[in-house]
Write a protein that binds this DNA or RNA. Sequence first.
DNA 1: AACAGTTGCAACCGCACGCTG
DNA 2: TCAGCGTGCGGTTGCAACTGT
Length: 304
Amino acid sequence: MRKPEPSVKNNSKLRKGLWSPEEDDKLMNYMLNNGQGCWSDVARNAGLQRCGKSCRLRWINYLRPDLKRGAFSPQEEELIIHLHSLLGNRWSQIAARLPGRTDNEIKNFWNSTIKKRLKNLSSTNTSSPNASESSISEPKDLNMGRFISTHDHQKGFMPVLNSSSLSMQATVLTNIIDRLPLLEHGLNMPAAGGFFNVTGPCFTESGVDNNGFYLENGVLGSVNIGPEGDLLVPSATDNPKVEIASNRDTNNSYFDIINKNHRAENNRGGVENLFQDQELTVGEWDLEDLMKDVSSFPFLDFSS
DNA sequence: AACAGTTGCAACCGCACGCTG
DNA sequence: TCAGCGTGCGGTTGCAACTGT
């Protein structure tokens, strides 16, 4: 690896480049004794000639005691691939579901290893009639697990809900994401603890009136399935669970958006005009592939 | 052994967002 | 309302280590 660089930024005494063992010791000792505070204070008080940002990065990506070092296990790898198919390049969201792994680590792993593998795989698959059987897929290239998303991806995402499989797709997403541990926020487990049963091509509830539903901005909501398999999405204000679980802004509740648009869809028929005023990018969700894919996870048990 | 090409990953950069005064 | 600051995120860069010729 690179040797620590003694470089000093022009007009500044702040060091850049690799961290020396001494700097690591200083930061580690300070963090263990004082805990996390204002990062610029950390840099100053720990006697480091680094900017706070650099200290934060070093701590989060390297020094944190709970970090898992070493290669990714096949299970982690598979989980990353599937989370990426659901979340895209939201590395922090993916990292939040992988204990001891950082977003930077996962991002590097993806860009260096998985991306390459996917590329090789897709090039070999083009000549194979069973290309879709691969457990590895990338939404961008292979058309799987795509979502409606806002252009500003910080604002969130929703699964694409077409008119015929609106509730099914939302249900599948709920099942998938709810069963992945969300380490950062701890909001992933549905309060009611219930999941849908899978009975053939449709989904029914298992005696539970709602299920946790994740949004990318950390909001936990719920979905109900109506008597005809239609999706009934309460607004955040109607649903105390949303309010309890939310630790971020819910002003632009997607449940409200879905409700509104679902109603609009019923009135107009078709989904072409949905989300129009949200500047959304519309994709499709290959449900069959997704179901086939997620079934390979032992912890994604759809039968309960 | 020497060199060139490739890989893996630590760290930087720029941007966006939230908070505060 | 706005500017300043701190923080977090995703994209990118740079280089040591590795591999192939």
